[in-house]
């Protein structure tokens, strides 16, 4: 089974992000890392490939510069190869443009049975890309997946809902968007890290994939204002000396919650 996994390389989420006022895009200085949301998809793809007894796990990533550090992490986990769409013109691209590029990567990758994505990225979190990719490929998309089994060419998943979960299924090829926590992502081994250095990364531009226009030109939207949110003032803080619970009860009583 051949599986394409989308991976995003993002600034470290522990550092609050910043918009560049000149370009109105995310500042991406410094090293980018593999979005943790994508590590679940990578792990799931590796497990499904191994269960199928063969095939490839192919990564697809989009970055405005030649960033590969996050991709190398996923290759070190055990993915076989990667396609990197790297193009300065991509700055400001919207989610639909991203989906168009990924759909083209799927075609470029060859004979793909399954595309796995995260439910949403940690930094952009529009959450629309998985279903957009499905639509552009003409494939079904199974989103909000918390469990997957593939039997006789049919993907059966548990879809998270507000009230519980649904059992849904569709024949391959499909796009599956997984929620975080579905599997325990492995840590790359030393051997994996060494092997990743020699795994092929096919670097292409948006024009190579035939997707134009991209960036702000293709986004059909314009940011008109960026401002700091009004801060919320902190209240009282107490060291718990055994009366912490009483203070909370008094606070709740004052609000007539209890």
């Amino acid at each position: 089974m051949n599986i394409l996994v989308t991976v995003k390389q993002i600034p470290d989420p522990a550092q609050p992000g910043e918009l560049d006022p000149a370009t109105k895009t995310l500042k991406r200085e410094g090293k980018l890392i593999l979005d943790e949301s994508d590590s679940y998809g990578v792990e799931m793809a590796l497990q499904l490939r191994d269960a199928a007894g063969g095939g490839e796990v192919i990564l697809a990533s989009i970055a405005p510069n030649d960033e590969v550090s996050g991709l190398r992490t996923a290759l070190a986990m055990g993915a076989d190869r990667a396609i990197l769409v790297s193009d300065p013109a991509l700055q400001g691209s919207d989610a639909l443009t991203t989906a168009k590029l990924i759909a083209k990567c799927v075609e470029r990758a060859g004979d793909v049975d399954l595309v796995i994505t995260a439910t949403e990225s940690t930094d952009g979190y529009t959450g629309t890309v998985p279903a957009q990719v499905g639509e552009l490929l003409g494939w079904p998309s199974l989103t909000f997946t918390r469990h997957i089994e593939i039997t006789d060419g049919v993907a059966k998943t548990e879809r998270q809902t507000e009230a519980g979960y649904d059992e849904v299924e569709a024949p391959l090829p499909v796009v599956v968007a997984v929620t975080a926590g579905v599997v325990e992502p492995r840590y790359p081994s030393f051997k994996g890290i060494m092997a990743a250095k020699n795994k092929p990364v096919d670097t292409v531009t948006a024009a190579d994939l035939g997707v134009t226009p991209v960036g702000w030109a293709g986004a059909r939207q314009e940011i008109t204002s960026i401002e700091a949110a009004p801060p919320r003032a902190a209240g009282e803080k107490f060291e718990d000396d055994g009366t912490g619970a009483e203070k909370i009860v008094a606070f709740l009583e004052n609000l007539k919650v209890v």
């Binding site: 989610a95 989906a99 959450g127 629309t128 279903a131 957009q132 639509e135 989103t143 809902t161 059909r220």
Partner: peptide
């Protein structure tokens, strides 16, 4: 709505209609 169903609906519609989505 930026909900489970709403996100799938807007995403698929956006690709079909070739329109951007302003989300969140």
């Amino acid at each position: 709505a930026q909900s489970y169903e709403g996100r799938d609906a807007v995403a698929r519609a956006s690709a079909r209609l070739d329109r951007t989505v302003l989300s969140n």
